[in-house]
Write a protein that binds this DNA or RNA. Structure first.
Lengths: 136, 136
DNA sequence: ACAAGTACTTACCCTAAAGTATGTATAAAA
DNA sequence: TTTTATACATACTTTAGGGTAAGTACTTGT
């Protein structure tokens, strides 16, 4: 019979992991499937809500709004609403969000490299990658 | 009464999103909370299973193994088992996994920058970041 | 003899995230 | 006048991931 193990205080441990590992810190902000994808869409500049939605057809409205709100709360994106009707709302990256460009760009580079080896192809190639030629 | 909307064929749509957005491609491989953290630990070189576990106390054994297996299946990490007892198993990054270094490094840079603004502090700073001085 | 360490596996449960399907206000266009 | 479009909100259900707890096989150290 094995002894009772002590992997109990997970929540406490998460704090120390959070303090020691910068990647953990990042994942707390942009972890999950959709956030990097949304941020990627906003790299090319301010976009209306409906444009983001159309750019990512696989996401549902509920989840999109939810993720946008979280990104806004974490200071990565900025929401601007014009008080007109029909409503006109744009989302854009904050300064902090902009600083994620190297992360997203590195991801894109890796994806293109890796997909070359495995046969997948992107319609959008890196020449058109938003911000490929500036401070990335 | 609103019409019935058609956000049905999510699975089909995921394919097109996957083909158009490189970030989606990346998220399919390293998405989720733990994978980047595990990869980060392996950046500094080959490690025994138990070393990885001790380096990430917040993760449970089940999840760690599970994530390692997935990373192995996706060709990002390599498992080497020596047929001795007690078992001796090491994990290391594959060539493909190594190419993620710029991604992880960019994340770490962002985390340090961002935490400076918000008061958080890391015990491990970027001077000690594995591979900070080479082909990142 | 018994505990301890290694690298797992398995069964069960629980919750947070995601998906489904609606509703809503307003105004301009058809 | 019905439709269309915008940017959401909300109730309800499902699923996948993660957490808990324990077991296993074998050997070295005490």
């Amino acid at each position: 019979m094995a002894r009772i193990k002590e992997q109990s205080t997970i929540q406490e441990n998460k704090r120390s992991a959070f303090e020691e590992c910068p990647v953990t810190y990042v994942m707390e902000k942009i972890g999950g499937y959709w956030k990097p994808i949304i941020l990627f869409q906003l790299l090319s500049g301010s976009k209306r809500y409906s444009d983001v939605r159309r750019a990512i057809p696989a996401i549902t409205e509920k989840v999109l709004i939810q993720q946008l709100k979280q990104l806004e709360a974490d200071g990565l994106v900025q929401r601007k609403a014009m008080p007109v009707v029909p409503p006109h709302v744009t989302y854009s990256l904050t300064k902090t969000g902009m600083r994620l460009k190297p992360v997203l760009y590195a991801m894109a580079v890796w994806a293109v490299d890796d997909s070359k080896e495995h046969g997948a192809v992107f319609r959008r190639n890196l020449k058109n990658f938003p911000g490929a030629n500036d401070n990335a």
